[in-house]
Design a protein around this nucleic acid. Structure first.
Length: 270
DNA sequence: CCGTGGTCCTGGGAGC
DNA sequence: TGCTCCCAGGACCACG
């Protein structure tokens, strides 16, 4: 499931194929993913030159010299295919560059999305306006988290999944960070001791940084932009490890919170 | 405002 | 072998 590290890896992987390149053809193979593609997507991108690629939360942004910004979300099974060839069943969008590269947006479950904004996307794209800070940025710190969680009775896990609190975490890295920081995912957010917030912030930054360094971890679906099947993360601390031993010697349990699986160790996470 | 739960979508694994 | 069932997940919306 592409979370922040996978999107970051994707953006970095796409950059050499797209930055400075003219888009000579843009093709959609169906009308929609989760939502319709912008009706004028191909018309507006064709002939434009890509000036930069960036990321906000779990979204990738491809910016052009027309001040158009294509914003993609990979959902749970999306990836960019850079090995070229012809469009397959689950290829839904194709970008062809002046250098001859053919980049397919491949998304079997179609949980992803593609939007197009003219002008500053951070100010104009609705989903960006309400986002909290980037977890790897300096303004995401213990003081911020203390303010954001004050009075909140929802479990800390739910709060960390809330993109308005912090932008880019998903189920896997929230479980991992909470285990590393030795905090129970079930604990009401406001009841997490103030002294544990700095370790929590540190843990979040650590798991994300490690995952980016590893090239973005993955479940079955994610492939790197280079198209290889690399980096299948086997080194999660708790995620997907029900009944296995935690580092502390306890046994990892799986519970359901808000309909989603949570993995944690009741012995060291309190 | 807050918290929770349903919904979208489809591939893949489990179970019969 | 082939069928059915159910789960995975982020974002968004409706509800109490």
């Amino acid at each position: 499931m592409p979370e922040l590290p996978e999107v970051e890896t994707t953006v970095r992987g796409l950059t050499p194929f797209l930055e400075g390149q003219r888009l000579v053809a843009v093709t959609t193979f169906r009308p929609d993913l989760r939502r319709p593609f912008p009706a004028d997507l191909a018309q507006r991108l064709t002939g434009a030159t890509v000036t930069s690629l960036s990321r906000r939360a779990k979204y990738g942004i491809v910016s052009t010299d027309r001040d158009d910004h294509m914003i993609f979300h990979l959902g749970m099974s999306g990836r960019w295919r850079t090995e070229g060839g012809e469009a397959g069943k689950h290829d839904h969008l194709l970008l062809e560059t002046g250098a001859g590269h053919r980049l397919f947006l491949h998304d079997p479950r179609r949980f992803g999305s593609v939007d197009l904004v003219n002008g500053d996307p951070l100010a104009l794209f609705p989903a960006f306006v309400t986002l909290g800070p980037e977890p790897l940025a300096d303004d995401f710190d213990a003081a911020y988290l203390a303010r954001a969680l004050a009075g909140r009775r929802a479990p800390i896990k739910a709060m960390l999944l809330d993109q308005a609190i912090v932008a880019g975490l998903g189920n896997i890295y929230v479980c991992e960070a909470l285990n590393l920081a030795k905090i129970s995912p079930l604990k009401p957010a406001a009841d997490v001791p103030r002294a544990k917030l700095a370790p929590l912030v540190h843990a979040i930054k650590a798991v994300l940084t490690a995952a980016i360094a590893a090239g973005g971890s993955t479940l079955r679906d994610f492939l790197s932009p280079e198209g290889d099947l690399g980096y299948f993360a086997k080194d999660w601390r708790v995620y997907g490890r029900e009944d296995e031993a935690c580092e502390c010697g306890g046994t990892i349990v799986r519970t359901i919170q808000s309909g989603r699986s949570t993995f944690h160790c009741p012995k060291c996470q309190r």
